[in-house]
């Protein structure tokens, strides 16, 4: 690993200052992806700004039917939170299936959302639930936030502080893991929530997470697995690699969507 300078700010202001001061500074929110990337010399940030000690950034709370999850909340915290379980159990279930137990104890929701790995689980939930991504400067809707592979609407120096989710009437996530990495080969999050009926797909898209319009229409008319019969997912824009060609991924989107609807 190349040398780097570690910072552990106690406030957002200090974090912003460190991010701005560093030549090529980046946020360390859990590091379960970042540190592996650095070990392989694929990333070499001059400064790491660890945001986990910032007061309140790991809090999980609900205000009525609106859930707020601090960016530094670990996957384990989300999975085991009674508040999350109460407001949006599908999200707790999703968190309990990310990585493995040791990774879940360190990886965070903010880190996952900011990284926008095309095979990560959280982006599907954010998009399907119509979540709001809260940063130190503004609030961004999930629709506007995820811009493509590892790409988001975040500006330089901008820090995610929380995500906000309105309780859906129904929601569930079904993941088909890539056999080696156990990331999503195809993950489908279905929700009947604040943004209406939504179907968000991760793992499969060449540009990262996306909404599956035909399935949303079918489910909007009739929320049942049967409503998806004959609604094929298009192969256009889907990834093809050794673990799954586009046609297989398209097929799995349909299968996982039905399984998610049945579970919701």
């Amino acid at each position: 690993m190349y040398s780097t300078k570690y910072h552990k700010p106690a406030s957002i202001a200090d974090a912003t200052a460190a991010l701005t001061a560093g030549e090529d500074a980046t946020i360390l929110a859990g590091g379960q992806t970042l540190l592996a990337t650095m070990k392989q010399h694929l990333a070499s940030p001059s400064d790491l700004v660890d945001i986990r000690a910032i007061d309140g950034l790991s809090d999980i709370s609900a205000d009525g039917n609106v859930l707020t999850i601090g960016a530094a909340a670990t996957h384990t915290a989300v999975a085991s939170s009674a508040v999350v379980r109460d407001v949006c159990p599908a999200l707790a279930d999703l968190a309990s299936g990310i990585g493995d137990p040791a990774v879940r104890n360190v990886g965070t929701i903010g880190g996952s959302v900011a990284n926008n790995d095309p095979a990560a689980d959280y982006p599907a939930a954010m998009l399907a639930l119509g979540a709001t991504i809260v940063t130190n400067t503004r609030e961004i809707t999930a629709d506007d936030f995820f811009e493509g592979l590892f790409s988001t609407a975040l500006e330089d120096g901008e820090i995610i502080t929380a995500v906000k989710i309105t309780a859906p009437a129904k929601a569930a996530y079904a993941k088909f893991p890539q056999p080696a990495s156990l990331f999503a080969l195809v993950g489908v999050f279905v929700a009947d929530g604040a943004g209406g009926v939504r179907v968000a797909v991760t793992g499969a898209g060449e540009d990262g997470v996306f909404r599956q319009g035909a399935m949303e229409s079918a489910l909007g008319a009739n929320w049942s697995a049967g409503a998806l019969d004959g609604v094929a997912a298009s192969q256009d824009g889907l990834m093809s690699d050794m673990h799954g060609a586009a046609d297989y991924r398209a097929h799995l989107i349909a299968v996982m969507a039905k399984r998610a609807v049945s579970a919701a």
Partner: peptide, 20 residues
């Protein structure tokens, strides 16, 4: 895998300086 504050963690993916 080791335990940090009672929880299992992958020590190869954790910076020592973050564990003061």
């Amino acid at each position: 895998v080791v335990h940090i504050n009672g929880m299992p963690v992958k020590s190869c993916s954790t910076l020592a300086v973050s564990l003061d």
